[in-house]
């Protein structure tokens, strides 16, 4: 179908860069300033990989996503997606990839979901028989049945996201690009979508690239994590490697029966207190620390907080040298 470049590369970016020219200041005294949103990224994604593309807001994630899908023209470097140059072959590329923006729907707001999907079929020129088969399949997997006839604006966020995923997959794309696919969803919807994506990847070999702020998405889905900050690649490897590269401790939140002086427990470091609640950074394994706390105090409640991606990425940038796995 497309001229595959190096064996099975789905995305091949070499020195990919994107500058923006900003005009600032009052009229007539405007100054132009060039800001690099993405600086010289090298990234190769192979067929069948599930890659998490992470980074703080404003790091260049969405600019990269826009360049990959052909919405935005790169200012430097070379980029090939499925063997095509996105900026020049946007329309052709569009028929071979699926894109989901978590924060805005690709469905038509006022149309019933079914009509939206039907329109999508025509836009992507999916033969009617293929469409029917695939729609039935996706309807089953994502449990769309009960709300196929509902106008999109009346769908819950989780239902809408399932509808968006269906629309993005009806034409059987080889690459699925997801921008915050689980943002704002409840736990059950998140789980449904993650399971679905894993299955899609395993059964059809669809390559998936997703941005997310949700560590759960990354842990459950991604074999590989790419971190971008200030426009540059900060890490490329697996999640364990990222954790090892920047050890960010887990935090134990203890609700004591009454306000107490800072706890002194071996294997944990006191962070702060707020009334009867205290925060402890764990240096030892949690069960040992909990046992020690429980031995000397009356505990009302306990929670263990995993470091979130923001924390890991921030720590990565503050201190440790990036260490590719």
């Amino acid at each position: 179908m497309t001229s595959a470049h190096s064996d099975d590369a789905v995305i091949e970016a070499v020195g990919l860069g994107r500058d923006f020219v900003l005009s600032e200041g009052p009229l007539f005294r405007r100054r132009r300033r060039t800001v690099a949103a993405v600086r010289g990224i090298d990234l190769t994604v192979r067929a069948g990989e599930v890659v998490g593309y992470l980074g703080p807001n404003g790091a260049g994630k969405s600019s990269t996503m826009k360049m990959l899908t052909g919405i935005l023209t790169p200012t430097s470097g070379s980029l090939r997606v499925l063997g095509m140059e996105p900026a020049r072959e946007r329309t052709r590329l569009a028929s071979h990839i699926g894109v989901v923006f978590g924060q805005r729907t690709t469905l038509w707001w006022d149309l019933p979901l079914k009509d939206s999907l039907e329109l999508t079929r025509h836009m992507y020129r999916v033969p009617a028989a293929d469409h029917a088969r695939r729609l039935a399949e996706l309807t089953g997997l994502l449990e769309l049945g009960p709300f196929l006839a509902t106008p999109v604006r009346q769908l819950s966020l989780g239902q809408r996201m399932r509808g968006d995923l269906t629309a993005a997959l009806l034409h059987g794309p080889r690459l699925l690009v997801l921008d915050e696919p689980t943002i704002g969803l409840d736990v059950v919807s998140k789980a449904t979508i993650r399971e679905f994506l894993l299955r899609l990847n395993a059964e059809e070999g669809t390559t998936i690239l997703l941005t997310t702020h949700d560590l759960g998405d990354v842990e459950r889905l991604c074999d590989r994590v790419v971190v971008i900050d200030h426009g540059s690649l900060a890490y490329d490897g697996d999640l364990a490697g990222l954790r090892a590269a920047v050890p960010v401790p887990r935090v134990l939140v203890v609700d004591l029966a009454e306000p107490s002086p800072p706890l002194e427990v071996a294997g944990a470091r006191f962070v702060r207190a707020e009334g009867p609640r205290q925060w402890l950074e764990l240096e030892d394994n949690p069960s040992a620390v909990i046992a020690r706390v429980a031995a000397g105090n009356e505990i009302a409640d306990l929670t263990l907080r995993e470091p979130d991606i923001e924390g890991v990425v921030a720590a990565l940038y503050r201190g440790a040298e990036p260490r590719p796995a």
Binding site: I71, A94, Q103, R104, T106, M123, Y124
Partner: peptide, 14 residues
């Protein structure tokens, strides 16, 4: 402003 132009741009239709 709403970003729906981006959505249109990722479809294979003018």
């Amino acid at each position: 402003r709403s970003g729906s132009l981006d959505v249109m741009l990722v479809r294979p239709v003018s």
